[in-house]
Simulated scan of single mutants.
Amino acid sequence: MPSGWTIRRAGAHHVTALFHVRTQVRENAMSMEGLAATGVTPEAVSAMLAASPCAFVAE
């Protein structure tokens, strides 16, 4: 990893950005509606992040 990067746990305040990145990928693309149909919603992700360190962000 290039120097100057910081990796830390993602929190509820990152959920909007996580969904933005997830819905912008080209491979395995999914829309917000598609994610919601599988149970992946901002509320569900916020609950997962609160319960366990299961996602990280790099800045």
Rank of each mutant, 00 (worst) to 15 (best):
M30F: 09
G11Y: 06
A44V: 05
G4R: 14
A55K: 11
V40Y: 15
A50T: 06
T16L: 08
R8Q: 11
G34R: 03
G11H: 06
L49V: 03
N28G: 12
H14E: 14
G11F: 07
T41E: 02
M48P: 00
V57F: 06
A29I: 00
A17H: 08
H13N: 12
S52E: 09
F56N: 06
S46P: 08
T6I: 11
A51T: 04
T6Y: 09
V45I: 08
H20Y: 00
E43Y: 06
A10M: 10
A37P: 02
C54L: 03
T41G: 01
A17Q: 08
G11E: 10
F56H: 13
A12I: 07
V40G: 04
M32W: 00
T6D: 06
A47C: 03
P42T: 02
S3I: 08
A17Y: 09
F56I: 02
C54N: 08
A29D: 04
T23D: 02
P2H: 14
E33G: 15
H20F: 00
G39H: 08
R8N: 05
A10P: 09
M32T: 00
T6R: 15
G11L: 11
A37S: 15
M48R: 14
F56M: 09
R9L: 13
T16R: 15
A37C: 03
A17N: 01
A17E: 10
H20W: 00
V21Y: 08
A50F: 08
G34Y: 01
H20Q: 14
H20L: 11
P42G: 04
G39M: 04
A55V: 00
Q24S: 11
A55Q: 13
G34Q: 11
A12T: 06
R8G: 07
R9A: 13
E27L: 09
G34P: 02
W5R: 15
T23K: 10
M30W: 03
G11I: 02
A55W: 12
P53A: 09
I7Y: 08
